[in-house]
Design a protein around this nucleic acid. Structure first.
Lengths: 341, 341
DNA sequence: GTGAAAGCGCTAACAT
DNA sequence: ATGTTAGCGCTTTCAC
């Protein structure tokens, strides 16, 4: 196997007639080089297309500028948005992400830990990893002293840094909106209760109902997964129960859209017969039938903020893990209407 | 900034009372170590949790076991599936992916090239990168001698390795299905013509029509993006033209679903008034209203195959770039029906 | 089967 | 402002 010969700092030094160290200073933008030499060296670098080898720098400086990215589900829209933000922020700060295990099956854990330690990642970003599955990962990492920031995955006990959306507030906001339209029998299709975000949205829902003196009816709550299919099946089972309700809070837009399919199948109209509100504001929400009223989360900004915090923790190991909650925004479209008297 | 001290090969060697080199042999599974010494060393490795530092190995061996992953759009379902497969395959072969630029804006190119060369990635996987934007990237990489495999992005001129779905066949399959149901006025909502996959689906569509003696009517073809919104707007403009058609081939399921929204708004029923077939078989397709007939692509397997090919090209630089086409599968649900006489 | 020496490409620390 | 020396943690090469 023949490998292309890369140009090294030595080549540059020889051509410029200076020592390796001086070239190193130029690469690293150190102040103690004369403008003249700096320029001469820079020209040679540009000309022969020299790129310092990250591995060698990492070995010598004990910094790898590498971050680990771990997630439970790539296909999740929420995830993809967060990653986009995270990636941009990292690049701007000259950090890069290594892909951790996508499938977080328990057997993968040793491999996963090995990846992170062998590569000496300087920090790890957990995006949308589920609750139970991952906590052992997290603890092991924490013990190893690597800074960890979690997104959409808050365990208050763990004391880990986290960036998330205010899901309690979001759940409250959604429910209050429906209450404001006169609805009191409000059903809910939740995400898996293993997810903190789902539990929090449920909590917000209950807070709002309680404050309005319209206590939650457990028969109107159905737990499921985050998928479209789950909304469809959940709504079907809700309808079979024959408990009256006039509005639904779905824990994400995919669930909401699945529920609408089931509603249509049952010849019920949205919003005339049933009002429905989602969560996320996925791109399709605007073009659903009907356009979906929903709770928007600032996902890309969350990714950026998480990465920023992670790098900050790397730079200052004493920095206490912070927990930041972003606010949600109610996006009113036409899947909800005022309850007729 | 205090960094945790990592255990090194030296620590292991000292504890085992052997030389560094012998430990190295154990790590790399070389045959020339006595079973006894090997076991003793292995026990110490396990006990103190030693992990060889990938950077140092890379520096010494000139192998980084790192691959670059570049894409135009994270939020694409197709992409996420392919990545999942690619990631699994890579892990099984002890390779890892570094995230390249997510946003493939032209300004990012220098940064992007720098990432890949500074990290000495051994190969690069381009997933679903668009045609025009990226070709300069590709050529630069090719010149640098780094193996490149593209997925969903075939430029025959470039001679690059690629794994893709047989989009011509898929387009033909979709169109033939509609023809078989008696439709002859078949409209089409395409993806961007800058994408090879879109052009190929169009080609398959034209082939099928021609073979059936029902030449394509350009007025029935509308180009758009891959997004839901585009299907919605495309169908609206199609309807405004008042050119009669009885069926639609949408270049992906999101477009199809957008089109269905527009159709519903226009008080047209699917499939009673208009039949529609999509492409991809996204999870939501099954639960659309109506459930969407579509063309399925084996995405995860494509990711695996692409990674396998990439690693093969790394191992054997003489291996000619291969081009592999996967077959598609027609998934019949209920968004199409036989044309009434 | 095992070890010693050299060096991968770079930075850190200390010279001058 | 620049050079010298040492060494990061590992593999390679060659010796025994």
């Amino acid at each position: 196997m023949i490998r292309a010969k890369h140009t090294t700092i030595k080549d540059v030094a020889e051509q410029a007639g200076v020592s390796i160290q001086t070239v190193s200073r130029v690469i690293n933008n150190r102040p103690d080089v004369s403008a003249e030499t700096r320029q001469r060296i820079q020209e040679i670098i540009d000309q022969i297309g020299f790129q310092p080898f990250a591995n060698a720098r990492g070995l010598a400086s004990k910094r790898t500028h590498t971050l680990g990215l771990v997630t439970a589900d790539f296909s999740d829209f929420w995830f993809s948005q967060v990653v986009t933000g995270a990636e941009k922020e990292a690049h701007e700060r000259s950090f890069y992400f290594m892909l951790g295990s996508a499938s977080s099956t328990p057997e993968d854990e040793p491999k996963f830990i090995r990846l992170l330690t062998q590569r000496h990642v300087e920090g790890v970003l957990f995006i949308h990893a589920s609750f139970a599955d991952e906590s052992e990962h997290l603890n092991r990492l924490k013990e190893s002293g690597i800074p960890v920031v979690t997104v959409g995955h808050y365990l208050p006990e763990s004391g880990l840094a986290m960036i998330d959306v205010d899901n309690v507030g979001g759940g409250r906001k959604a429910t209050e909106y429906l209450l404001g339209l006169g609805h009191t029998r409000i059903a809910m299709l939740t995400g898996p209760s293993g997810w903190k975000s789902a539990r929090n949205r449920t909590e917000g829902y209950q807070q709002a109902l309680q404050a309005a003196g319209a206590p939650a009816n457990l028969n109107l709550i159905t737990e499921g997964t985050w998928l479209h299919k789950s909304g469809y099946l959940g709504m079907k089972s809700l309808l079979e129960k024959r408990m009256p309700f006039t509005a639904v809070f779905a824990h994400n837009d995919r669930i909401a859209r699945g529920a609408i399919s089931a509603l249509h199948e049952a010849r019920l109209r949205v919003p005339e017969d049933i009002s429905i509100i989602g969560y996320d504001d996925i791109p399709e929400a605007e073009f659903s039938d009907p356009p979906l009223t929903t709770i928007r989360q600032p996902m890309e900004e969350i990714g950026r903020a998480a990465t920023r915090l992670l790098i900050q923790m790397i730079d200052d190991r004493e920095a206490a893990p912070k927990q930041v909650l972003f606010d949600t925004e109610l996006i009113v479209r036409s899947s909800c209407m005022r309850l007729a008297e």
